[in-house]
Every structure is written in C-alpha cells, then in structure tokens.
Amino acid sequence: MKQFKSLSLTLIALLTLTFTFNACKDQVNIPPNPNEEELITTLELTFTNENNSSDVRIFKFADADGDGGNAPTITDSIVLAANTSYSLAVRFLDESKSPVEDITAEIVAEAIDHLICYTTPGDLMITILDKDANNLNLGLAATVKTQAVENTSLTIRLMHQPNQKNGNCDIGETDVEVTFITTIE
C-alpha cells in the first residue's frame, strides 16, 4: 500500500508540474503569418528608347507566392525594335504586400553582395552601367542594343554572392532567374 501511495503522490506532483509548465508557453495556436515574410514576387523591366523617350516598354514576370507553391501569374514576352538602343531599368518587387514593396533598394544597399546577370543566345548587346562600392558591376541599369530582326530569349539572374563577388556570374546562389521570350521586330 505504501508503494501505491508514493506512486500516486509522484504522479500528482508530476501532473501539477506539467500544468504549471504549460501555462507559461508560446501560443501554439497563433503561428506566424508567412505573408508577413519578405518575398520577391515580381521582376519588372523598363526599356526606354534612347532616341525617343516616349517609347517606354514595360515587361513583367510575376509569381504571386514567390518561389515554390503556385505557377507564375504573369509571363510577358519582350518585344523591342531592331537596331535600337534602349536604356534598361530593373526592379524587384514584392506584390504580395499592400502597398507593393520595392526590394530594389535593398539590393542597392547590399550591392557588394549582388550581381544581375544577362544572357542571350541572340544578338542583343547588353552593357551594365552601374557599379558597386568595389567598382564591380551591379546590373540594375544597363544599355541594351538590338541588332537585326530575330526571335530569341533573354535570361536575367539575380545572383547573391556574399563575400565572393568578383564580377563573375557563375558563383553564389541564384535568387531570381527568369527567361523572357524576346522578339526583335
């Protein structure tokens, strides 16, 4: 009997301990809302004709829920005039927030860790204009010169290269990678 008594006493003590403990815990039923997290949802390209400032062409790629999850919602094709020089401005946005958040400023602030890379199998000639504090290319501003009429593509990558950036594209981690179907007409 004595044994059972001490056993039940132990049990009661343990259960009391359990409940007191639970009283001061994190709220399990209020998880963080991931929508408050920062996302890159949209890549926006603004081409301005260097000889005609009223010729402004905006193309977008938007993936409302960021990486993973659902398929992209906007996948524009780039259409540019042949034998023309355009100045290009690139913006990265978080459109899941209201108002829309512009993440470009953060990339500028961390310019020494970032590089925007352009690749095309066609004849586009792309020259990056902006530099970081170490005088290496950044890539948010560029000149794009089109040549003859062609059907091609343009791939734009935002590379994150903390402590490694040397101007080369093939290092670091890809934060954004979008390939636009491109028509030069």
């Binding site: 949802t41 990558r157 890809t174 954004v176």
Partner: peptide, 9 residues
C-alpha cells in the same frame, strides 16, 4: 520541374 521566379526546380 516547376517554374518560379527563382528559376526551375
């Protein structure tokens, strides 16, 4: 593979 703004996965 599935396409997203970060590329294909």
């Amino acid at each position: 593979t599935q396409l997203s703004i970060r590329g294909a996965f």
